[in-house]
């Protein structure tokens, strides 16, 4: 297992420069759509407010907690691995993935409720943004879980082939899902 020494180089942010370019591109993309949503809300203020009240903020807040706790365990996974504690690292990674799965489970319940109530993508402008942004985020969480499952598989079957840079890049991607949700949750569920 290769070790990475921490240095404040422009070319080596934690997780690697390519992953951080992806992080900024994703943040700018989601950020731009959220700003567009805020612009549309000016023309349809009452519709946005009434639609926002139809969202389940408790589900949103619990999902925020699931992702935050999952991110906490991801950070512990990387720390444990840096100190060559593979068994702890595997336990933390399992808890990280559990957080992601719980997020997806609750999101599925929330989506089911919305579809049952007829609040689908074409219902109004607010719900068009809601479905587009949250579904795009869910896709990121799914991709993140596949990446983490792949890291876990290597930890289990070929721990000698585990590359620290790859684990850090995977962790950065997972935390990025957290960052995006931290922008989506207040704007979609709380502000309007």
């Amino acid at each position: 297992m290769s070790q990475v020494t921490t240095k404040a180089s422009l070319y080596y942010p934690p997780g690697g420069i390519l992953m951080w370019i992806i992080v900024y591109l994703e943040l700018f993309t989601f950020g731009a759509v959220l700003v567009a949503m805020a612009l549309y809300s000016k023309d349809e203020a009452s519709i946005f407010h009434e639609s926002r009240l139809q969202l389940n903020t408790t589900f949103g807040a619990i999902n925020t907690l699931f992702l935050l706790v999952s991110g906490f365990f991801m950070a512990l996974t990387v720390t444990a691995l840096k100190t060559n504690n593979l068994s702890k690292s595997k336990t933390y990674l399992k808890l990280t993935m559990l957080g992601g799965l719980l997020f997806l489970g609750l999101k599925t319940v929330e989506y089911f409720d919305k579809i049952e109530a007829g609040l689908t993508m074409g219902y109004n402008t607010f719900f068009s943004f809601y479905w587009m942004l949250t579904l795009f985020h869910v896709i990121h969480v799914l991709v993140g879980l596949v990446i983490l499952a792949s890291v876990f598989r290597t930890m289990n079957k070929n721990p000698e082939k585990l590359i620290m840079e790859d684990v850090e890049a995977s962790a950065t991607f997972w935390h990025m899902c957290d960052l995006i949700w931290l922008l989506l949750f207040p704007v979609i569920y709380l502000v309007f």
């Binding site: 422009l10 934690p14 935050l68 906490f72 935390h175 960052l179 922008l183």
Partner: peptide
């Protein structure tokens, strides 16, 4: 919250000032 996740969990506090 965004900054706490980025600077601690993502360890951005150890990164170059540019990032």
């Amino acid at each position: 919250k965004f900054l706490a996740v980025a600077f601690y969990f993502m360890e951005l506090r150890h990164a170059n000032t540019f990032w």
